Amino acid sequence: MQERQARNLAIVRDLREGMRRTDVARKYGLAREIVSLISSMQSEDNPIRRKERDQAIVQDLQEGMKRTDVVRKYRLAWETISLIARMHRADMAIRRKERRQERDQAIVLDLQEGMKKTDAVQKYGLTWQYITRIAIEQGVGMARIRKERRQERDQAIVQDLREGMKEADAIQKYGLTWQRITQIAIEQGVDIVSIKKEHKQERDQTIAQDLQEGMTSEEAATKYRLTPAYIRNIAREHVLRRKRVSAQELEARDRAVMQDLKGGMSTKDAARKYERTQVHILTIARKHGVRRSEQNARGRQLRDLAIAQDLREGMSVKEVVTKYGLSKGSIYRISRKQGLGPRRRGRPPNSAPADPS
């Protein structure tokens, strides 16, 4: 007995001096687990403290602490931790069973609340077959759960459709095809065609109201994500007429249109400004004796005069090309036509040389 105690003390002394456990085990002809056990028993002289430590280790293991964390916390070898755990194996088995029951109850609760299959598998790290078996053991029918969840989903789909959800939004939200969504609506006693028709009528009435309040066709098209032509069709369907104007007002408007056209404005810009079609603008121009070719010639003439003026003021050819969207050849041709000589580097065209005095 005394020899064993002396050996144990020598083992503890070697370990404290920094000798590795494998070297100590080889030196004294013992297993590494025995050396670890001797070290732990000799380091805790008070049996009461050692009992409290063992109970704390078992408690940590029951609560799910990892092996490396237990070894680091108590500064013991894993072999010693394993020996302590085997001594309290019954308590650990009971705790594992309790933890498994708590987990199973949580799984069933999540499934009843509508958790998806993939989410349950990812949360608990189990296969779907094992989760299904747990639900059956707990007395929960998976078929009934799936049926209830499907009914809740179908009711939500019908509610969204009645509130005006678009096809693309419903497909993206529920991950179903439009054919399947239509089938669900029919099973719920809802007519998709009538719902679409009601939504379209409400939208068209809102568009007509916006147009009556002064919104242009382009603004309405941007707001409702429709084409201006479709907006005008909606206006015609709702017998939307602009307020009547007098002959004097029409004549004043036509004069303003002609003034803008003679000033170089395109028919497209004039149609956008006066909220008319290009055909209507061209009709006004022909009515006042201006044909489209004459209008284009007048616009080009004004443009050439502006280009010549910019060149005289010292603007470079590159800047003029960027401003008017023309090629360099066109700019040179216009400058010659306007009586400007070829550009020289270092001074604007037709500018007098500096006085040397």
Results as ranks from 00 to 15, higher is better:
278 Q>S: 07
117 K>I: 11
86 R>G: 05
120 A>P: 00
251 E>H: 14
240 L>T: 12
140 V>W: 00
327 S>D: 08
182 T>S: 15
198 E>D: 10
97 K>T: 11
252 A>Q: 13
244 R>A: 15
124 Y>N: 03
51 K>S: 13
243 K>N: 11
288 H>D: 02
350 N>A: 11
211 L>D: 01
84 I>G: 01
60 D>H: 08
13 R>P: 00
229 A>V: 15
272 R>K: 15
276 R>Q: 09
317 V>I: 14
172 Q>F: 03
145 I>W: 02
198 E>K: 13
244 R>V: 11
77 A>P: 07
285 A>S: 12
65 M>F: 02
1 M>C: 08
305 L>I: 11
319 E>W: 08
277 T>N: 00
282 L>F: 13
95 R>D: 10
241 R>W: 13
102 E>D: 10
324 Y>P: 00
314 G>Y: 09
314 G>L: 04
185 A>S: 04
319 E>L: 08
84 I>P: 00
36 S>Q: 03
132 T>K: 11
345 R>C: 03
16 R>E: 14
271 A>I: 08
51 K>F: 10
153 R>A: 04
170 A>Q: 01
151 Q>I: 09
322 T>N: 06
228 P>V: 10
237 E>P: 11
3 E>F: 06
142 M>P: 00
327 S>A: 13
261 L>G: 02
336 R>I: 08
346 G>W: 07
121 V>P: 00
190 V>R: 04
49 R>I: 03
152 E>K: 13
337 K>C: 02
2 Q>A: 15
84 I>W: 04
199 H>Y: 00
107 I>S: 03
139 G>N: 06
213 E>N: 08
31 A>K: 14
162 R>E: 14
356 P>E: 07
352 A>V: 15
47 P>K: 05
15 L>Y: 12
80 T>L: 05
96 R>H: 08
188 Q>N: 02
304 D>C: 09
138 Q>H: 13
103 R>G: 08
176 L>T: 01
339 G>S: 01
197 K>N: 06
79 E>M: 05
98 E>M: 13
67 R>I: 09
31 A>Y: 09
31 A>R: 12
355 D>Y: 08
50 R>Y: 04
125 G>C: 02
293 S>E: 03
317 V>W: 06
62 Q>Y: 01
33 E>R: 13
220 A>H: 05
263 G>A: 15
99 R>L: 04
150 R>C: 10
300 R>K: 12
24 V>Y: 08
338 Q>K: 01
297 A>S: 06
310 D>F: 07
197 K>H: 07
87 M>R: 15
108 V>Y: 00
272 R>M: 15
206 T>S: 07
97 K>L: 14
126 L>G: 00
149 R>S: 15
226 L>F: 05
262 K>V: 10
27 K>Y: 11
299 G>C: 13
278 Q>G: 07
164 G>F: 01
346 G>P: 05
63 E>V: 02
312 R>H: 11
303 R>Y: 12
16 R>W: 14
50 R>D: 02
2 Q>D: 15
356 P>G: 05
266 S>Q: 02
311 L>M: 10
57 I>L: 12
272 R>L: 14
121 V>Q: 09
32 R>L: 12
273 K>D: 10
295 Q>K: 12
225 R>C: 14
261 L>D: 00
211 L>Q: 02
169 D>K: 09
185 A>V: 03
5 Q>G: 02
267 T>R: 03
10 A>R: 11
14 D>F: 09
